[in-house]
Design a protein around this nucleic acid. Structure first.
Lengths: 337, 337
DNA sequence: TTGTACGCGTTATCAC
DNA sequence: GTGATAACGCGTACAA
């Protein structure tokens, strides 16, 4: 391995470590002549500073952590893309942690992130997490956190979200205007803020249009696609009057398709479906899926910008910096009248 | 912030730093009594070791790097899932870097990865990369590298790939058996090994079935979905006899759908389409897409296992550890006769 | 302009 | 069992 470090460079050049270090940082107090010499040798030997020594010394790691439930998910992978874009521009590295919506796993992750491994954190909380003690602990030791999409309301930091209430309302109204009268709501798992808020929009739209809210038409995610499909089939069999489905998260919309196909219910003739989704091929589905699409990439960029700005300026992040971006409704065949 | 570190713990307990350190590592040469005391206080103060100090001292970071072209891609996100699963089990952290198939970016990334930030690296090379000097430099300073899918043949390490030649052959034969006689091949960008190998399978299948290979039926990726669709439309207009399309990568299959829709060519009646793809909703497309599906999750797990095993045992990785997994062909409506 | 010396927080090697 | 102490590689006050 024979690591090339400052000492090695200094020896070969007959200079002190300090001078070499300064030269490589373009310090103004080094003659341009020695700077050249140093840089030449550094390039020749392919010198790269040891990130750990540097981080330890400066108490800065130029690394941010991203904690998300899944990466194999259109929404989150787009967010990560946005985050990486901004991070890369600013010279930051990105550590990824997946919770798989598991509370224990989230606790473990937040625990070792208190070790100063990252300068800041972007996070979408696991849907199972109802207890926030671990997040509060983390927040105390490392206040540079920005939540996105699945926020933790108990912590006074910036959140980047979308207009979920409004989207829930519009999606439901869209179904009603397409003629639906018995609309099922597919709830994302746990006590998740986004699930609740979208559902409030759903309830408000029903009320405003004189339709009753019926909690037996609400199916909640159980974490497994097969079982979700079975639950939806169950609902459709038990309640044949259901003529509309509002999936508050992408995979539930997909499960709804499978359920309808399995039962031979025609979409959109018998059942109309709308879902939150960042699926790129939504328009190519049979039938094309009507979606509420969140600006995932932009959310990632925005959240990363807030975080990096705070880190660089060493300023605390305040709830006042929160951002609410707009989702967009793309009407397609799955809700055609 | 008031970081809690070993010194702080030692002071409060009237112990030496060394003892505290040993106690926290469950060293056998510490009385169980003091161990208890130390651990209790550590828990109370929410002590977490500083990862950078530890890494610096031990020359081990418990971190692996993953370099991929994109994360917003079903194949790579599944691979990352597999990697993260294995890494997490072994207590490793995962740094993600995206090249966006850009050579410059890959060079920059490999450059700072020589800085000892990671203990090992999993990599799928950027499609634009025709020069391997940067990878060889990296390999010299850090031999723990495993390539997956998009390998760099110039480097003598383990590769985890799929049976691309065979898959290319089978996909083409599948189209021929479905009645196709003029089969276009959509090539993934650059001089990528996988593109070439899959294409060799394509050519062999044509030959074995008495069909001529015609390089004007080969369209190569140009990095932008819109332009790819335009190129495919162009081909279909110029060569109306084309009755089959073999997309060597997912997004080209999607572009083929768009192209056919735009031109009003019926799939599969007029044009049959098969593509490499990990799209979860392939079966829900209009029409359902016939796919060659790589075991992406397993590839990620396998590659990570090879890497971590080598790291833990401090053994070099040899080409002999390479793995070739099998892809699977799922015949669906898009290639029905 | 350059060199000396210390400390970042840990771990490991000595002593006692 | 426990305590000093010396590294790991780097950055920076302070000297020269």
């Amino acid at each position: 391995m024979n690591q090339v470090n400052l000492k090695r460079l200094a020896q070969e050049l007959n200079l002190s470590i300090a001078t070499v270090s300064r030269a490589l940082q373009d310090s103004y107090e080094v003659s341009s002549q020695t700077k050249e010499r140093v840089k030449a040798l550094a390039a020749e030997l392919n010198y790269e500073p040891n990130a750990y020594a540097s981080s330890l010394r400066r108490n800065i790691s130029k690394t941010i952590g991203v904690v998300v439930p899944e990466v194999n998910n259109h929404f989150f992978s787009l967010v990560i893309n946005g985050i990486e874009e901004v991070a890369h521009q600013s010279g930051y590295h990105v550590l990824i942690y997946l919770t798989h919506d598991d509370y224990e796993r989230e606790v473990a992750i937040t625990q070792y992130l208190t070790g100063g491994r990252v300068d800041g954190l972007l996070m979408s909380v696991a849907s199972e997490s109802q207890k926030f003690a671990h997040l509060q602990k983390l927040y105390v030791s490392k206040p540079a956190i920005v939540f996105f999409d699945r926020v933790c309301e108990a912590i006074a930091t910036a959140n980047v979200t979308t207009n979920d209430y409004e989207s829930g309302y519009l999606a439901t109204r869209h179904l009603i205007e397409a003629g639906c009268r018995h609309i099922a709501y597919l709830l994302v798992s746990g006590n998740l803020s986004i699930g609740r808020i979208r559902m409030q929009g759903y309830q408000a739209a029903l009320r405003d249009h004189g339709l009753p809210y019926d909690d037996t038409l609400v199916v909640s995610d159980d974490g497994d696609d097969e079982r979700n499909t079975a639950r939806i089939m169950d609902l459709l069999r038990r309640r044949p009057e259901v003529d509309g489905i509002f999936a508050s998260v992408e995979h539930l919309a997909i499960s709804s398709y499978h359920a309808c196909h399995a039962l031979g219910r025609a979409i959109p003739a018998e059942v109309k479906i709308i879902g939150f989704s960042n699926l790129g091929v939504a328009a190519l589905l049979a039938p094309a899926l009507t979606t509420i699409t969140q600006p995932a990439y932009e959310m990632g960029k925005a959240a990363a910008q807030i975080l990096l700005c705070a880190i660089e300026k060493k300023r605390a992040i305040s709830p006042g910096q929160s951002l609410v971006l707009k989702s967009e409704l793309f009407a397609r065949r799955s809700t055609a009248s």
